[in-house]
Design a binder for these strands. Structure first.
Lengths: 143, 143
DNA sequence: GTTGGTGCAAACGCTTTGCATCCAT
DNA sequence: ATGGATGCAAAGCGTTTGCACCAAC
């Protein structure tokens, strides 16, 4: 499923936080690695069951929670209130979601830190975090 | 509940979009006008029932939908996936939510349009909209 | 009078939980 | 061997819907 050195790396990431390295968790991670799009829980569940047929839906929920905790996966909030998941990008970036094909096209490098700092100064509010997503139409869907 | 001229103004906003001006919808709007914080559906329901005791929860949901449609109210997505509502600010601004007291402290003027445009050029993705919320600690909660 | 809005309750979909079993450590 | 993880089913919760009645127009 994963290369030998990658396996070791992942394994120690789990162990460092006191999590066990289970086939189900690896399967969920693998499914997300293998696609650029974000996936709904149900899609992930279906894909995981292709090679681990007995996997329960609850386990998928619990695995995703663990993977988010490990910063390996990012939760995406869709406009309709539903959630999906994608492999975490490098650093802190913001997903661009295609409203036509429903893919996370890419992650934008959006320099919000400076602006946050300025807002903190202007308003006296300590800005701690932000949540930003961009919605648009990807190249393929513009045709 | 509302002043005479304000009533007329609101009334015509409803009628312009083909909505009826009902006491329930006005009550929901009034409840949101009277607080600076964002309110959960249940809180709104409770407050509305104080002067319209027979109001059903479903009506609150439907009224909020209508008010959002009229741009009188804004839906806020909280970090845990829950939703709340606040009176819409002037123009397109972004809510700053206090993670301690759960209030929408204010709305930030965040110039994302230029950045959006640049991202569109850089990536070839037509950015249509964005969703941004800031989370922090308000002055009162910093004490 | 007509049409859309309301109240109620039931249904719905997503997510979480309890518990016995299993397996990674 | 032991404690966390899993699978299953049931429960939970926020939200939506169907329908008869009501009220705004």
């Amino acid at each position: 499923m994963f290369s030998v050195e990658k396996s070791k790396e992942i394994k120690s990431m789990f162990h460092d936080k006191g999590f066990k390295c289970t086939p189900q968790r690896l399967a969920v991670l693998k499914v997300l690695q293998d696609t650029s799009a974000y996936l709904s829980i149900n899609t992930i569940h279906l894909k995981v069951k292709e090679f681990l047929p007995d996997t329960g839906l609850a386990t998928v929920y619990r695995s995703l929670e663990t993977l988010v905790d490990l910063n390996l996966v990012v939760k995406v909030h869709l406009e309709d209130g539903c959630h999906s998941y994608v492999i975490a990008p490098e650093g802190h970036r913001h997903p661009i979601v295609c409203t036509d094909c429903n893919k996370v096209i890419e992650f934008a490098e959006f320099p919000l830190d400076d602006l946050s700092k300025q807002i903190s100064e202007d308003t006296g509010v300590q800005i701690k975090t932000h949540f930003l997503q961009l919605f648009g139409k990807c190249k393929e869907c513009q045709a």
